[in-house]
Design a protein around this nucleic acid. Sequence first.
DNA 1: GTCTATAATTCGATAGAC
DNA 2: GTCTATCGAATTATAGAC
Lengths: 195, 195
Amino acid sequence: MDQRTPLPKPRRSDATRATILQAARQRFAMDGYERATIRAIAADARIDPAMVMRYFESKEKLFSLAVEFDLRLPDLTAVPRDQVGAAMVGHFLDMWEADDTLQVLLRTGVTNDAAAERMRSIFAAQLAPMIVEFTGEPALAPNRAVLVGSQVLGMALCRYILKLPPAVAMSREEIVGWLGPTLQRYLTEKALSSR
Amino acid sequence: MDQRTPLPKPRRSDATRATILQAARQRFAMDGYERATIRAIAADARIDPAMVMRYFESKEKLFSLAVEFDLRLPDLTAVPRDQVGAAMVGHFLDMWEADDTLQVLLRTGVTNDAAAERMRSIFAAQLAPMIVEFTGEPALAPNRAVLVGSQVLGMALCRYILKLPPAVAMSREEIVGWLGPTLQRYLTEKALSSR
DNA sequence: GTCTATAATTCGATAGAC
DNA sequence: GTCTATCGAATTATAGAC
């Protein structure tokens, strides 16, 4: 397993908890659930492995706390209607590159059912309602949310997880330029166009 | 007396090998690399776990053989230019639902680097060249391949792996209707549109 | 070819001294 | 709170009898 820069050792217990949680998120994001061991997380946090168990009882509970966070979704009503697609692509790119909380879900949700359930919850309880508020029609919102999510998650998968060379090489402007119109259509098009 | 190369005699061991490989693909596709154990694969193939090791030497070599297959990509030159997006969506849907070979790559490529490298190889050696043959311009082909792949993989992730309820509920026609124009634009649009 | 037994690791989790 | 020692289970992999 690879070496990573150790985090500064804290003094207070609550700071210890935060340090462990941060190290856990990084490990889960990099290695997935199975390969992220308590021992490796403890080593990253520069703490004894037994302490991790003392603070979080079990690996499963540590994981559930590590993936418990609120998505900071943008306020779509604040941007012009014809720019909502591009704005959303830019916002999600910011989120993916800000920290590794989204990487945790993508890396673990594929094999861990708790993480997958967390993703389903995010789509249903956060993304879809925001789209309802934007479009005003609750009927198609779940479908629009999944369409937007599929394109955003797919690009994140190619760029940040699989690291496909062309996806890594693309600039932010290129990604916004290509994916913006796609999300624009998923968010605003009334119904399916005939072909 | 003439000497001729003898035909490969079909042995009993060949069928056993194939049975193990098929069971391995299913397990790797369902559980990912770590959680798919030799014991479980052997149980599925109704064979002794030691036999799996005898035939494939190690779990890693078994895995590398399990993800070695040729993608059957459609001949884009055979379909009308304005229907190429919809045709491609339909073709990929067929592939995803035909067997679990694509699920193996998606489920394991997230945490296993060998599978990720296999995916990068598929994009560079099969998908991109096919797009070059279709568009005639090699410059943008890697980007188009990644764009198409991101949307297709993203929808597969939501529908077949994460099983987001709206993605599972969508009909084949709906998916083709929404994703078709997206892939059409990724495949045919000359350059980025200004906004 | 087949299977039993087991080696060698690694992991999550626990007990208990200090 | 912290750490040492270790348990029990699960895993890949090997050795060898039949």
